[in-house]
Computed example of a mutant assay.
Amino acid sequence: MNDVIKTILSRRSVRAYTDRQLAQEDLDLILEAGRYAPTAHNGQPWHFTVVQDKALIDEMNVKAKAVMAKSDNAWVKGVGSDPSFHLTYNAPTVIVVSGKKDSMGLDTDTCAAMENMLLAAESLGIGSVWVGLLRFYLTLEEAPASLRLPEGYVPMHGAAFGYAGGPKLPAPARNPDVVTYIR
């Protein structure tokens, strides 16, 4: 099996991190992998914000949870109301992928960039988790300014990165009955 397939099959969402910050060389490689994601018409409509300021990461957590605590969805409300829950699991680095508002493939292109970064991190021995709940912060009116986004960009996705603070969990079973062949 080749290294790319091994990396894809071994990547797990990490939800416990050490305090050790990423080495700049590794962070540069992760970001480079994001920049090499495919895009509609090679638009490359993304902007990457690397947040390593613990105060801002904690503020993102607090503000997202405040929105979540008011949700009509019982699960979201419960998570938002849990004082012990930290959306980014106290990871030392959070990367937010933003996209140009008027780009053709905004969501698809920014998702591809995020996935490339998650796989690059795994290949470097760095843990990560795509944090969908960060959308409760990213959709706040103040988010673009706090993330210092260029004019015309909207924050789309966020993920936590760091060194795993525990053992890697086994992959959950995958449903093999999800393919239809038309030949």
Results as ranks from 00 to 15, higher is better:
R35G: 08
L29C: 08
K63S: 02
W46H: 02
H41D: 10
N90V: 07
K70Q: 15
Q52E: 13
P45V: 00
S13L: 05
G166K: 08
D19M: 02
A16F: 06
A74N: 11
G132Q: 10
Y153K: 07
Q21V: 11
M114T: 11
V14H: 04
A171S: 15
T18D: 00
G78T: 10
G165T: 03
Y89I: 05
P176M: 09
D26M: 03
N116H: 01
R11S: 03
L138M: 14
H86K: 08
D53A: 12
V62Q: 12
T39C: 05
R183A: 14
S71E: 06
T110L: 03
P83L: 10
S84A: 14
K65P: 05
A16C: 13
D26R: 00
L124S: 09
C111S: 15
V14L: 04
V97Q: 06
Q44S: 12
V62D: 14
D107G: 11
P92L: 06
H41E: 07
I57D: 00
M104H: 07
T93W: 02
T139W: 14
R20H: 05
S81A: 12
L169G: 10
N2T: 15
M1R: 15
I182F: 14
L106S: 10
I5F: 15
I182L: 14
L124Y: 05
K65D: 02
R20C: 06
E122R: 12
G152A: 10
S128W: 02
F48N: 00
L149G: 05
A143W: 06
T18S: 00
A121I: 10
K101E: 15
W75E: 15
T93F: 05
A121V: 03
I30W: 01
M114S: 07
V51K: 05
Y137E: 08
R183Q: 13
A55H: 11
S81M: 06
K63M: 06
I5R: 11
A159W: 07
A143C: 08
T139H: 15
L169H: 10
P167D: 14
A66K: 12
L134A: 04
L106E: 09
H41F: 13
L140D: 09
D28V: 04
D53N: 15
F48E: 07
A121T: 05
R183P: 14
G43F: 08
L29N: 03
G80Y: 08
E59V: 03
G34C: 00
G162F: 00
E122Y: 02
K101W: 06
V62G: 06
G43A: 11
Y181F: 13
D102T: 12
A171K: 15
M68G: 09
P144M: 11
W130G: 11
N61F: 04
E142N: 14
L31F: 09
Y163W: 09
G166P: 02
A37Y: 02
P172Y: 15
R11I: 03
A160S: 06
Y163H: 03
R12Q: 10
W46E: 01
D72C: 03
R20V: 13
K77I: 10
Q52A: 07
G132I: 05
F85T: 11
R148V: 09
L87D: 02
M68P: 05
H86M: 04
N73Q: 12
V50N: 07
